[in-house]
Write a protein that binds this DNA or RNA. Structure first.
Length: 424
RNA sequence: GGAGAGGUGGCAGAGUGGUCGAAUGCGGCGGUCUCGAAAACCGUUAACCGUGCAAACGGUUCCAGGGUUCGAAUCCCUGCCUCUCCGCCA
């Protein structure tokens, strides 16, 4: 959420920045509502002041056992007015909130203007592996090696739900452990294991609601949602709290499954494990002081890269252009890993700085020093990494001519020393 | 799932309709004393909104939302959460 006061004082800037994000919001209409709201507040507070004063007088009269019926009658009239104004205020605030919660974050100045095609490749690591044969896609390898069972996954739940079997299931679990170990042992993150279901307030705090409701799974009791990413429960850990001066920065890493409806995505790029309704992910979250957040973005991105480097997978880092930024992000790097079997780069991590956008929505604050006013910290998150596409890259990059998969060296200890995955 | 109790300031904990934003204690901060510290003593100690350049002033907030009343932390209704006991269960 943006700061309403900031919008009021910088409306031209806000309108221009929102245009870069390809969002059309009636800012001037919002400011009219805000003006009307403040007028109501002023009239209301004048009357409340009057009521407070008269009420004190009534209390005095009563104590002295004197008659106060005139004043009481007068207050009954004033109260009718107050009641009407209070209703007006509630309506105005509801309408303003409705708009405010749907305004996306503003892109940072360093973000290129444009759409999906305007992303900028910042750097790349490694090279595409070369094969003396035609590399096979992971769904062929996976079925042949008994690692995934797409048909039965679909039978149990529906299309887009994966049944991992044998070495596939174990590979997934090994990777989760490898990622969490690196982030806790080499990068200073505190491991947390949050709830996989969250309430509406939590989902609103990070910005998934109200705008992206159709992308989420909602439980039929209507108050709970399945998390689409660990970002949601973890970033909200300190919602509605004021953190003391020495509390920041906070670094968390969490494994959760992620549930996404992927409405409208059917058909395209969805074969095998590429796009599914439930997938595992290890997520990093950083809650930091505002002045450091853009340095922190570079750091969190490097942490995600570390996993791909450890696994020896070729990837590139792309900076997203303004129109492709997610709702809450001010700046974002995507990590795309090379998948030789499908012949594509696949997004395995998205590292974003949300500045104070999420903190303001969830009312999370900190004090820079004892006695100072609370401020909003900045929040960041980055996948480290999404599992299925990492599995794809490993399977396809490390496949051999005879249809086996070599296990990357760093992963071998997590698979009990196993060096090759083959048909058992 | 059944029965009961309760949600008050950073924490503990009073307060059951009339200057209550809220006693008291602890903690925090500032000061006196001291070479320094402890102890003791004194003072101070929230968030949010609005007007204002500011100083300041006004308003709101005792889990949340609604209601009763001239007036609510205090009474009524609904929801959420916590605790205790019983049952069930990984």
């Amino acid at each position: 959420m943006l700061d309403l006061k900031f919008i009021r004082e910088n409306s031209d800037k806000v309108i221009a920045a929102l245009a870069k994000k390809k969002t059309d919001v009636d800012i001037n209409g919002l400011l009219d509502l805000d003006k009307a709201r403040r007028d109501v507040i002023q009239r209301l507070e004048t009357l409340r002041k009057q009521r407070n004063d008269v009420t004190a007088e009534i209390a005095k009269l009563k104590k002295a056992k004197e008659d106060a019926s005139d004043k009481i009658a007068g207050m009954q009239e004033v109260n009718k007015e107050i009641g009407a104004l209070e209703q007006q205020l509630r309506d105005a605030e509801a309408r303003i909130d409705e708009i405010m919660y749907r305004i996306p974050n503003l892109p940072h100045d360093s973000v290129p203007v444009g759409g999906e095609e305007d992303a900028v490749e910042v750097r790349s690591w490694g090279t595409k592996p070369e094969f003396s044969f035609e590399p096979r896609p992971h769904w062929e390898l996976g079925e042949a090696l008994g690692m995934i069972d797409l048909e039965r996954g679909a039978k149990i739940s529906g299309s887009g739900f994966i049944l991992y079997t044998g070495a596939g299931a174990r590979l997934e679990r090994a990777l989760i452990n490898l990622m969490i170990d690196i982030h806790t042992q080499q990068h200073d993150y505190v491991e947390v294991s949050p709830p996989f279901m969250v309430n509406t307030a939590t989902m609103t705090g990070t910005g998934q609601l109200p705008k992206m409701a159709e992308d989420m799974y909602q439980l039929s009791d209507e108050t709970m949602w399945l998390v689409p990413t660990a970002e949601v429960p973890v970033t909200n850990i300190y919602a509605n709290e004021i953190l003391p001066p020495d509390a920041l920065p906070k670094f968390f890493v969490a494994y959760t499954p992620c549930f996404r409806r992927e409405a409208g995505a059917a058909g395209k790029d969805t074969r095998g494990l590429i796009r599914v309704h439930q997938f595992d992910k290890v997520e990093m979250v950083r809650i930091v002081k505002p002045e450091t957040s853009y340095d922190e973005l570079e750091i969190i991105t490097s942490h995600a890269e570390k996993i791909l480097q450890t696994l020896g997978l070729h990837y590139r880092v792309c900076q997203l252009a303004s129109g492709d930024l997610s709702f809450a992000a001010a700046k974002c790097y995507d990590l795309e890993v090379w998948a030789p079997g499908v012949g594509k780069y696949l997004e395995v991590s998205s590292c974003s700085n949300f500045e104070d956008f999420q903190a303001r929505r969830m009312n999370m604050r900190y004090r820079a020093a004892e006695g100072e006013k609370p401020e909003f910290p900045h929040t960041l998150n980055g996948s480290g990494l999404a599992l299925p596409r990492t599995v794809i890259a490993i399977m396809e990059s490390y496949q051999t001519a005879d249809g086996k998969i070599k296990v990357p060296e760093a992963l071998q200890p997590y698979l009990g020393g196993q060096k090759v995955i083959e048909r058992s």
